[in-house]
Simulated assay, not measured.
Amino acid sequence: MASHHHDHGHSPGHSYGHAHDQRQAHDQRQGHDQRQGHDHGHGHGHSHAPTSFGRAFAIGIALNIAFVIGEGGVGLWSGSVALLADAGHNLSDVLGLAVAWGGATLARAAPTKRFTYGLKGSTILAALFNALLLLVALGAIVLAAVQRFSDPPTVAGLTISMVAAVGIAVNGLTAWLFARGSKGDINVRGAYLHMLSDALVSAGVVIAGLVIWKTGIGWIDPVVSLVIVALIFGQTWGLLRETVEMALAAVPRGIDYDGVEHALTTLPGVERIHDLHIWPMSTTEPVLTAHLVVPQGHPGDAFLSTAREMLHDRFGIGHATLQLERGDECDGC
């Protein structure tokens, strides 16, 4: 994104048709190439998973698919709803890893005249789809668990613990694959935290299996499955809320709107700011457009570069379009 006129049409729900004076248009045309190159440096590689994590995604997905098949099979054989619930959770991990990997791949797709931002927004749609699908699966698990209360099956507690222990190893290893990138990349951090939390859930299943093995109390199994569902529901509901917000072009979580407004207002020569919009281009890349009133006229390319670097470094906004105005005539546009 560069600070020139035609880019403003991208701001959702707002039409920009302002007329600029000849001096501003001339100054912006002079610096167009320089600013365009600068913006591209911020816009790529800032948020989505680096190519080097493709192998980690592939290994993590393969491990979890193998474990889901094994755990689901043992769950059906032993009649353990807790194992089936945990297998469903691990299946969601496969979908989550696939979405993160697919989003990282699609984020590198080149923009076209039809899709001027590329296909970055598909990560929001995929996350929303996965959240809704997972809620349906959780409902099915709850129904099966409730039915088991009236007729608790005889389950092999030791078998449950052994299978869930394998889950701890699988999820722990997958989390380790993403540990080195968890601090610098939001997609990788999400995968890391998800897999780490799943290892803790599997630990809970191990404990339940050992209790069943020692006491023979079968109803502990559906209780544990309901606890697992509650834990997954909390994560899923948060994911659903955030993806719906993203689909509605809300200000991304973690970005302080007032802080951004104040930071832009305190830039040298800026008298006030209006029409500030911040929304997500994808699940990891926010976009900003704003009108800055600069009575002294266009302050030059260095001002724009400094402003964009500030937005990138302080707020993680790698795509910023700034429209400069000299007076009051555009305030109500």
Rank of each mutant, 00 (worst) to 15 (best):
H194A: 10
V94H: 02
P295M: 02
H194E: 07
R23T: 14
Q24I: 15
V68N: 01
A156S: 15
W279A: 08
V155T: 12
H26R: 14
W237D: 01
S122D: 00
L125F: 10
H18P: 00
S15R: 10
G43E: 07
H8N: 13
F53W: 12
D39V: 15
G54H: 09
G88N: 06
V251N: 00
L83D: 01
I69T: 07
Q296E: 13
L119D: 00
S47L: 02
V227G: 08
L288D: 04
A169V: 15
A230V: 14
V155P: 01
L193M: 11
D33C: 13
P111T: 07
M310L: 15
G72D: 01
G73D: 03
K120H: 08
N171H: 08
V294R: 02
V163T: 12
F233S: 03
V136K: 00
Q34K: 14
M310W: 03
H277D: 06
G167N: 07
T174P: 08
A179H: 13
V99R: 00
F178R: 06
L138V: 04
I59K: 04
G60L: 11
T51R: 08
R35E: 14
E71F: 05
G157I: 03
F315S: 01
D185H: 07
D221C: 05
P286H: 02
A85Y: 02
R108N: 06
I65G: 05
P12A: 08
L288E: 03
E71T: 04
V251Q: 00
A247C: 10
V81D: 04
A144V: 13
D198M: 07
R308D: 09
V224L: 08
A126P: 01
S225R: 03
V142I: 15
G216K: 06
D328E: 10
T321E: 09
F315G: 01
H40S: 11
G316T: 07
G121H: 12
G31H: 13
S92P: 04
A140E: 09
H298I: 09
V163F: 04
H291P: 10
A107Y: 06
R55A: 15
I59L: 13
L196Y: 01
A302T: 15
N171F: 12
G316N: 02
L135V: 09
S11W: 00
A191M: 05
S282Q: 04
A290N: 09
L196E: 00
L276N: 05
H10C: 14
T265V: 12
G184E: 03
E261K: 13
V211Y: 05
L193V: 12
S197V: 09
H48E: 14
T243W: 02
T154N: 09
L200R: 01
W176D: 02
I141H: 00
A302G: 05
H26I: 13
G103F: 05
G297C: 06
L132Y: 06
L267D: 02
V224A: 14
A58E: 03
R308A: 10
A82I: 08
G41R: 12
I69C: 11
G297A: 07
Q30H: 14
G60F: 08
S92T: 13
Y117E: 04
H32C: 11
A62C: 11
G88Q: 03
D86R: 10
